[in-house]
Structures are given as C-alpha cells and as structure tokens.
Amino acid sequence: MERGASRERTKQRTKLAAARLARGLTQKQLAHFAGIPLSSYRRLERGQNSSPPLRWVVNLQHVLVLDELHEVLEEEWLEYRQIRPGTPRRPPDRRIIEARYPV
C-alpha cells in the first residue's frame, strides 16, 4: 500500500476535515498556509482542541475560501467558558475584533 493511500481514507470527523478534503489540501499544506503549527492543526481537525484562537479560525476560513465562519466552526468552539469558576468572562469588544479582522 502506498504511503499516501491511508491519507485518502481520512475520516471526515469535523467540518474542518471535510472542507480541507473538498479543497484537495493535505493537513501540512493547510496548516502552513493558515500559519498554524502542524501538530496543533491536527488536534483541531481531530476535535481535540475545544477552543482554538480566533486568528486560526479566521485564517482557515480565508485559506479554504469559505463565505462564512460557521462552515468550519464546531459547536463546542462556540460554547461560553468561564475563566475561573464563579468569575464571569466578558465577551470581547466587537470593535476590537473588527479592527483586527476587517471583513
């Protein structure tokens, strides 16, 4: 069996994996183009990172040429998390996000 043959049979466990395979990219290529360490990207694709940095998600959207972020966002990435038990976390100021990530 060829070395790359097992890659073709990658299970589409996440929206991210499905989008990558639809574009015909390898994990290494997509991680490189999005500026994400390969090991971190692989954890993302396997669903082992429950809160990736927004920068990574936006970069992936751009590299995969997707119209909407929800095309790669997993449900658990959207969950509200507290910094410490009992300490509510303020949502980020939308103006800061828009200034850093212009549409």
Rank of each mutant, 00 (worst) to 15 (best):
R81Q: 15
G47F: 00
D67R: 10
D67N: 09
Q48S: 03
L30R: 00
R7A: 06
P53L: 15
R95N: 11
E2P: 09
L73C: 12
I83C: 15
P53W: 13
P102W: 08
K28C: 08
V72M: 07
T10C: 09
R13F: 12
R23V: 06
A19G: 02
A31W: 00
V65Q: 15
Q82P: 09
E74P: 06
R81I: 12
Y101W: 15
T10L: 12
A17R: 08
E98G: 08
V57N: 00
H32I: 02
L54R: 03
K15P: 01
R43G: 03
Q29F: 00
R3L: 04
T10N: 11
Q29E: 10
Q27F: 01
L44C: 01
Q27V: 01
R81M: 11
L25Q: 07
P53C: 13
E98P: 04
N59A: 14
E2Q: 08
H62T: 06
L69I: 14
A19Q: 10
R81S: 13
E74G: 08
S40D: 10
L21K: 05
P92L: 14
L78R: 13
K28M: 08
T87C: 10
K15E: 03
R94T: 10
P102R: 11
S6M: 14
R3S: 04
Y80L: 15
K28V: 09
R46V: 03
Q61N: 07
G86R: 14
G47E: 00
L21W: 00
T10K: 11
A22S: 04
A5G: 05
G86K: 14
T87Y: 11
H70L: 05
R55Y: 02
Y80V: 14
R23P: 01
P92N: 12
R9N: 06
L60H: 00
I96N: 07
G4S: 11
S40N: 12
E68K: 06
I97C: 14
G24R: 06
R42P: 03
Q29V: 02
L78E: 14
R84S: 13
R46D: 07
K15I: 02
S50I: 07
Y80E: 14
D67P: 10
L38S: 03
R90G: 09
R55L: 05
R13E: 15
K15S: 04
E71I: 03
R13I: 13
Q61D: 04
A18W: 00
H32D: 04
E79G: 09
R100D: 10
R84H: 14
L73V: 06
A22M: 02
T26W: 02
E98R: 15
V57Q: 02
P91H: 10
N59E: 15
W77D: 08
R94S: 14
G35N: 00
E75R: 09
R90S: 15
L78I: 12
H70C: 07
E98H: 12
R55K: 11
L78S: 14
L64V: 10
Q27L: 01
L30Q: 01
V103Y: 07
E2T: 08
P92E: 09
E45S: 01
T87D: 13
R7D: 09
A99C: 06
H32K: 07
P37V: 07
R9I: 04
R94N: 08
R42D: 04
R95L: 10
H70P: 00
D93W: 12
H62Y: 03
R13W: 14
K11C: 02
Y101H: 14
I96G: 01
S39N: 02
V103C: 11
P92M: 12
T10W: 04
M1N: 05
L25N: 03
